[in-house]
């Protein structure tokens, strides 16, 4: 019937429409290719001066050079190390605290307003202060990442825990479980998929704060290289590194999503 096939034809942009993983990736790749083509178009046609925006060919050539000389790996290694340590410290502290204030109103009263207060202080404004406190080494980078992510994580995780249905706790109570057992065996597992998602989102912010810290005061790292490149008008390097940062973000985000899919298969809604 024609109507039926019509419905199929428009199916791609229908609410709740399905999409195979292969098609999903294909569509994403087409979009990236399109963006690349636009970039190439405006530069190759001379519409934009190379000083402001060099063409993709020149940017990739520069990246290849930097990769060959080892510079890229060195810079990336330093930044990845910083982000891992900073993010890990924030996470290790935020998860228990978030769970605690999500479960107990009294703890929420003690901690939540303070966290909410700090959260609204601009992280950028802490940069001079952290340099004063911790110098310009790795410690200061950890500190900035921590300030930028920890407080957000705590609030997100608190929300994740609060969304656990009350009746789950009541089931534990009717089974005469102790408070601690209810917390460890019901509340935390129930909140885990949400917590994982919150961590994934906050990892994206952590990158932003790291690069910021490296832009302002550092002697190594991706952000540092971007500043030095600016000094010598090496626009190719700046753009190349920004692309690399984007790529890292995309890869870690997709990786965390893939892990969640494996770990929390049960949480997937039936469609």
């Amino acid at each position: 019937m024609p109507r039926r096939s019509d419905a199929r034809g428009q199916g791609l942009f229908r609410l709740t429409a399905r999409l195979t993983p292969a098609r999903f990736v294909a569509i994403s790749c087409v979009v990236f290719a399109g963006l690349l083509a636009v970039w190439w178009g405006v530069t190759a046609s001379g519409l934009v001066k190379p000083l402001f925006l060099p063409g993709p060919d020149r940017v990739f050539a520069r990246l290849a050079d930097l990769a060959a000389s080892g510079q890229l790996w060195e810079d990336a290694g330093v930044s990845i190390y910083r982000i891992m340590v900073g993010f890990l410290i924030a996470t290790v502290l935020a998860v228990p605290i978030g769970v605690l204030i999500g479960c107990y109103r009294a703890w929420e009263a003690i901690i939540e307003p303070v966290v909410d207060f700090v959260r609204y202080m601009p992280v950028v404004a802490f940069v001079p202060l952290t340099i004063l406190w911790a110098g310009t080494g790795d410690g200061q980078k950890f500190l900035i990442i921590w300030i930028g992510t920890f407080f957000q994580q705590v609030l997100l995780i608190m929300d994740n825990v609060k969304r656990v249905p009350w009746d789950f706790v009541n089931v534990g109570r009717t089974l005469e479980l102790k408070e601690r057992e209810i917390l460890a065996r019901i509340v935390v597992p129930a909140a885990l998929p949400g917590i994982w998602d919150s961590l994934r989102i906050s990892l994206g912010w952590a990158w932003t704060w790291l690069v910021l810290a490296e832009l302002v005061a550092a002697t190594s790292g991706l952000g540092y290289r971007i500043v030095t490149a600016q000094r010598f008008f090496q626009t190719e390097t700046i753009i190349g590194y920004i692309l690399v940062l984007g790529l890292f973000g995309l890869v870690t985000d997709q990786a965390m999503k893939a892990i969640a899919k494996r770990l929390f298969r049960y949480a997937e809604a039936r469609r």
Binding site: P165, D167, F168, N170, V171, R173, T174, L175, E176, I186, P189, A190, L192, F264, Y266, A267
Partner: peptide, 19 residues
């Protein structure tokens, strides 16, 4: 005095643990 295993409860909402 509080909940106990002498009384089983079936809640109106779905309370199976999804994991």
């Amino acid at each position: 005095e509080g909940p106990g295993r002498d009384r089983g409860v079936v809640f109106q909402s779905y309370t199976l643990f999804p994991w």
